[in-house]
């Protein structure tokens, strides 16, 4: 009796261990691809981007270049959303300092409600494009229209963007980025 149970457990654990080793690399690759996809969405056209993220003001960020000149910064910023952590990537156009685009990297928002912040062509995502941080205070219901019935998600998303802009200021102050 105990023999069968132990045997079954051992076989299953061995099987899963094998499966884990095999899928480890594809899982890491899938995670990496999410970041790459987000980078291509939030930044103006670029040809190289920093391999590993840099750090400023508690946020990770990537620098994108085209023909050797810096064209944009992509800043990752996180806060608590409605259903757990919300991570947003904010892309900033290096020429103007305006927001180019934003994209959620990771979220646990309700499908059909807060999860609408994923929709790249939705009203919530598109309203950020081309905004000048100097002209807006970024407050939900003033500058930013909330997603219907998802005020908490919208507020958290807005907070992420504000944090990213703070980090951007710090990046700009570093002499190496002049």
């Amino acid at each position: 009796m105990v023999l069968v149970l132990t045997g079954v457990c051992l076989v299953c654990a061995a099987l899963l261990g094998g499966a884990y080793v095999i899928t480890k690399d594809p899982i890491a690759k899938a995670d990496k691809e999410k970041t790459v996809k987000a980078l291509s969405e939030v930044l103006p056209a670029f040809d190289t981007v920093s391999e590993e993220p840099l750090e400023a003001g508690g946020c990770n960020y990537y620098v994108a270049q085209k023909d050797g000149a810096v064209v944009g910064y992509a800043i990752e910023s996180k806060t608590g959303g409605f259903g757990g952590e919300l991570t947003v990537m904010v892309g900033i156009d290096a020429k103007t300092g305006f927001i180019w685009n934003t994209a959620p990297l990771k979220h646990g928002e309700t499908p059909g409600l807060g999860a609408k912040c994923e929709d790249a062509n939705g009203k919530f995502r598109t309203q950020w494009q081309g905004l000048n941080p100097a002209e807006h205070a970024f407050e939900v219901k003033k500058d930013i229209d909330a997603i219907t019935a998802s005020t908490i998600t919208s507020k958290a998303y807005t907070k992420c963007v504000t944090q990213a802009l703070e980090a951007y200021k710090l990046i700009m102050e570093e002499p190496s980025n002049e």
């Binding site: 996180k78 806060t79 608590g80 959303g81 259903g83 757990g84 646990g108």
Partner: peptide, 10 residues
């Protein structure tokens, strides 16, 4: 596994 947001940070 889940990140909870009670009291600020997740």
């Amino acid at each position: 596994t889940k990140q909870f947001t009670f009291g600020g940070a997740a």
